[in-house]
Design a protein around this nucleic acid. Structure first.
Lengths: 187, 187
DNA sequence: TTTGATACAAAACAAGTTGTTCTGTATTTA
DNA sequence: TAAATACAGAACAACTTGTTTTGTATCAAA
């Protein structure tokens, strides 16, 4: 890939993430991105068809790593192992988030966070779903499985939201403990 | 209030809700609302300063009733009463939603549902918060109270989301049972 | 029923936005 | 070095937003 392309793509991403810190996604104009990234109009449209496409590309790129890393984790350690594992996938995810590569925490707490949180939750949902299918020795036969899966991924994302709203005063390990406390009793 | 104003306001609301069923909020133009509601441009701007203000007004109007009704419920029966009460506030809320006045379920499952879900959750959060403060004989001293409050309201909204995604195949009573199963063990 | 107020429709408007297309230049790869 | 291509800059039509103006229809109060 051409070095110029890489540089431009990165400039657009950085500009977009920076703008998102102070402005809602819908209110950001292409012109503002151009000014912030210092690129020409035609250049932008050579990279992305629309602003929406840029959004999708960012989601894929930023959450791709985190989710992939979590998938690897489940392949070796499973999802939770009901207290046995010293570290759950969820703790792993939180630690990964806290590293804040590419200011991913900024995206998850900006005004347009819903967009990214929903993307995050959908990825998480798939991960948990497959995990449940694999070794499902569930005791709670009362509840529909997809309800439970949704409850877990939904609660996790809501916890991240709560965490960020409180300016990250808690450690990933503490959060993992909180999450275990409200999830393990129902498994 | 002038009858003409009421009629116009209602026409705008209906048009807006109808458009939201097939189009994302951000993609809806004022012109489309005018055409659907059969009103003039100046008329719209006499009622609402911007499209965003219209959105706020709709949220207030539609969720106001439901939340107020839930608040009344808590005043007489409390939030959950740990299994004693035949009907929880949550069941009450779900039944209210199912009546689908003003197509509120349409709003909660349309492409722009995040907007309304977040508004719904914030209202719910306040309600649960006050309830916790009132008679807080919590046993789980391990968890921060606002984490628990957030977990409950968040999980509820996520359940509603799951419910609507599955085209409402479950009754409010069933959902209430599911919700008790995942919330009561941790209280 | 009349009268004064006002909600309304229609149209024109400036300012801003989007996505396209063109030309010429700079950079990269082979 | 040469051919390919990524880029800047500018101009463009089509659309959107919110304002303003003018004349008409409807309302509420006397």
């Amino acid at each position: 890939m051409d070095r110029r392309q890489i540089k431009t793509r990165q400039a657009i991403f950085s500009a977009f993430v920076k703008l998102l810190e102070t402005k809602r996604y819908e209110k950001i104009t292409v012109q503002e991105i151009l000014d912030e990234a210092n690129i020409g109009r035609s250049t932008f449209y050579a990279h992305f068809e629309t602003k929406d496409e840029l959004l999708k590309a960012i989601c894929k790129e930023l959450f791709g790593h985190i989710i992939d890393s979590a998938i690897d984790k489940t392949h070796t350690h499973g999802l939770y192992s009901k207290g046995e594992a010293p570290q759950s996938v969820f703790c792993h995810l939180l630690q990964h988030l806290q590293e804040n590569d590419n200011n991913i925490l900024g995206l998850l707490s900006c005004e347009s966070r819903e967009i990214f949180l929903r993307y995050f939750k959908d990825s998480l949902n798939e991960l948990i779903q497959t995990q449940f299918v694999n070794h499902s020795r569930r005791e709670n036969q009362d509840l529909p499985q997809d309800f439970l899966v949704n409850h877990i991924s939904g609660s996790f994302v809501e916890m991240v939201l709560w965490w960020l709203k409180g300016r990250e005063k808690h450690t990933p390990e503490e959060l993992d403990h909180y999450f275990r406390s409200v999830i393990e009793p129902i498994l």
